[in-house]
Amino acid sequence: MSKAIEVKGLYYRYDGMDEDVLLDINLEVKRGEVVLLTGASGCGKTTLCRCFNGLIPHFYGGDLRGEIRVAGFDVKKTPIHKMALKVGFIFQNPDSQLFSLTVERDVAFGLENLGVDKEEIKRRVDWALEIVGMKDYRHSAPYELSGGQKQRIAIASVLAMNPEIIVLDEPTAYLDPKTSLKIFQLLDDLNRKLGLTVILVEHRLDLASRYASRLIVMSQGRIVLDGDPATLFHHKLEEYGVSTPRLIRFFRQLEKEGYSFDRLPLSTEEASTLLRRIIS
């Protein structure tokens, strides 16, 4: 089973709303992909993510039409706690997803819910804390941690449950750029080391796109662009309410001067390599 996510003709509307928030979503994500999902506020990206772990329809209710299979499960028929075995979810607000009094117990929370035995819990907590680089904070209380550290613990709590897919909804919204970059690097690391499929909702395309194998742009409930970021950036994303990274804007200006680039650079390293070729 190499498909992490399969969505066919998905429509959704929240309870009590007059209009659909998701319209005709068709999507296939292979295992091991790192997908960057973006779009203007209200485009439906958070709503779509909630469908990936069962929060929609089981927590939010509403009317979900169409087919959606995640990690082999039919989301409409699978309860959230079963989806949680395969799909981990990281939310925007670092504070609202840490509810224990110590880091250790937070990371263990999911495993305790699943009835895993004590020794195994201990092993996995150790492993998860190590892999996110927070081993020394085992006994810390949440209020002692910075925003970035809290998000790492949230990621560790999810990793401890050994999911195949991890969905992150604007995890860096409250973090500064340098810390955000470290989170993206961690996700890239997890993808390489563990083969984790990553779905990342972000506005910070300048920092995140280099780690993504795929960029999906949503607008008004639909998927309007879907492909390799390096080629997708040829489109004018501004018309969908998304800002293009300045590097890309610069290279688009070069294209106006007569140069053409198949693949646009996603990092300053790539950009400088490309630029050196055309400068005397």
């Binding site: 706690h81 079963k82 979810f89 939310f91 509810f99 250790e104 009835g115 004590k118 907590v125 999810v158």
Partner: peptide
């Protein structure tokens, strides 16, 4: 708002999966 956010996060980490929870610390 926070209660809602907490509930979402708890469900996403399999809260309520089985009746008898285990525990890391005893």
């Amino acid at each position: 708002q926070r209660s809602m956010e907490l509930a979402e996060a708890m469900e996403s980490r399999a809260y309520g999966a089985i009746r008898k929870r285990t525990s890391l610390c005893e």
